[in-house]
């Protein structure tokens, strides 16, 4: 870990100004991934701008029925928040399926979104990785890649995004709020993370110096049945082999809204738009779910050792969607 300057920001403005004033700066939230990567030498910031104590620690119910979660609210507090549990349960479940109690107590909402891939080559500075060192090559493409992407990957990068939370946010049509030199803006959570293309070093759409200030869960998905399910190698404290977050509105015996996102399959939470479109107006049957997910997963291009992820994602997806159908319809 390189020596670095440390600045504790008192406000969002102070944070972005300090960022601009310190070449090679990084924002520090809960530190659970950044400090880990600094110890590995993967991240080498010249300065840390500590945003962990910014007044972004509130969960606010907005007049329009949406819910704003401040960027510094800890993962455990989001998961336990009554509004989240009652109205967007998939988000609570996703958070609780991730990491450990200790990590969730430290990790922030903003930091969770900005965590980096757990690809073993990304984490090892002695090996090639285009994400860590553009142009050095992708060791995972032909290497050890059982845990890697089956959708949306490129020749330059086959990493997956590790967040569980982000998968739920994507399915629930959440938006990510940002503050930067150009003021505030927000982007859909499902579009916040990028596909690798030929720029795998860029994980997200965030602009230099921009700060995540919060996420907003929209009223449109509030109170709808939603679920998160994750398959993993051990019963707890493991990253997803594949996961699914889904929200479903069924009226008059047909699907009126479906939000489906996969985790563990791609460089970003994979919003299953083709599957969603196929389900609109359809009867919510297991066969319809399977058919829709097949359409989505037809785009999958598994690597040598991870073809299992396709049926796994399909199975989990069908299971989750089936469980979201109200009993009167089922």
């Amino acid at each position: 870990m390189k020596a670095f300057a440390y600045v504790r920001a008192g406000s969002v403005e102070e944070a972005t100004e300090a960022y601009a004033a310190h070449p090679g700066a990084k924002y520090l939230g809960g530190g659970t991934n950044l400090v880990d990567l600094m110890k590995l030498g993967v991240e080498q910031p010249g300065a840390l701008i500590d945003v962990g104590r910014l007044p972004l620690d509130a969960v606010e119910e907005l007049p329009d029925g949406s819910l704003r979660i401040g960027a510094t609210v800890r993962n455990s507090d989001v998961a336990a928040h009554p509004a989240v549990r009652d109205r967007w349960p998939a988000l609570s479940q996703a958070l609780l399926a991730g990491a450990s109690g200790q990590l969730r107590n430290a990790a922030t909402t903003g930091g969770n979104l900005l965590q980096r891939t757990r690809c073993p080559y990304f984490q090892d500075v002695t090996k090639p990785c285009n994400k860590r060192q553009p142009g050095s090559g992708c060791a995972a493409l032909e290497g050890v890649h059982r845990d890697h992407a089956v959708l949306g990957h490129s020749e330059t990068c086959v990493a997956t995004h590790p967040s569980d939370m982000a998968v739920a946010l994507a399915a629930l049509d959440a938006r990510v709020e940002l503050y930067g030199a150009d003021g505030t803006r927000s982007v859909p959570a499902a579009r916040f993370h990028r596909l690798p293309g030929d720029r795998p070093e860029r994980d997200t759409e965030i602009r230099p110096g921009e700060l995540v200030t919060g996420v907003v869960l929209p009223a449109a998905t509030a109170g709808l049945p939603s679920l998160y399910r994750k398959a993993r190698d051990r019963a707890s404290y493991a990253f997803a082999l594949a996961s699914v977050a889904a929200v479903l509105r069924v009226e008059d015996g047909v699907v009126r809204h479906a939000g489906i996102a996969f985790g563990g399959l791609a460089h970003r939470p994979w919003r299953a738009e083709r599957a969603e479109a196929a389900l609109l107006g359809a009867a919510p049957t297991e066969a319809a779910f399977g058919h829709a997910l097949d359409l989505e997963l037809a785009a999958a291009r598994p690597l040598r050792d991870n073809a299992f992820k396709v049926p796994l994602a399909r199975n989990v997806g069908v299971d989750v969607l089936t469980r979201l159908v109200p009993p009167t319809v089922a």
């Binding site: 073993p120 984490q123 090892d124 060791a139 032909e142 190698d233 051990r234 019963a235 707890s236 404290y237």
Partner: peptide
């Protein structure tokens, strides 16, 4: 390719947990 083990930490080498 590299001659070592892909699992070099306790996040990837899965020692059983309580659960």
């Amino acid at each position: 390719s590299f001659g070592d083990f892909a699992e070099r930490d306790l996040a990837s080498y899965h020692v059983p947990v309580h659960a």
